[in-house]
């Protein structure tokens, strides 16, 4: 019963932050600020959705059902690690590519990287 509550809370938090991330992508003015919204919130939201699944699998294992539910939890954890590492690195690559292809952060109060390039 407690497990059900934890699952609901985790899923709720995950979906809420994913929704905020998508809203940020639609609302923010330039590619860098959109990346802020995308990386942080969707990674966090997906981590919480994965946590809900892990808790579900763990609760089933506690009830005495072994085998597939243990595999479910462990594999979801591996997916979570893969996602957390690759998302941040991917965002870094996109930001670098955007700057190299000549996208100026706009609006911006200062751009040290552009000063170095010139």
């Amino acid at each position: 019963m407690i497990a059900d509550t934890i699952i609901m809370v985790c899923l709720g938090i995950g979906l809420l932050f994913n929704a905020l991330g998508v809203l940020g992508i639609l609302r923010f003015p330039d590619v860098y600020t959109r990346l802020h919204a995308e990386t942080k919130t969707t990674t966090f939201g997906t981590i919480f959705i994965s946590l809900a699944v892990i808790v579900y699998g763990a609760a089933r294992v506690m009830e005495g059902e072994t085998g597939t539910y243990l595999t479910l939890s462990v594999h979801t954890f591996v997916a979570l690690l893969a996602l957390a590492f690759t998302n941040a690195t991917g965002a870094h690559a996109i930001a670098r590519a955007a700057h190299r292809s000549g996208q100026v952060p706009k609006p911006a109060v200062v751009d040290r990287l552009q000063e170095v390039r010139e």
Binding site: F17, L20, G21, D30, Y32, T41, F44, V109, V110
Partner: peptide
């Protein structure tokens, strides 16, 4: 990370940004 998300959520809703590199 939790702080970061609350921060971004606040900025998504209010739109208060002052960006730069």
């Amino acid at each position: 990370m939790a702080r970061a998300n609350i921060d971004v959520a606040y900025r998504v809703i209010t739109g208060k940004i002052r960006p730069g590199i």
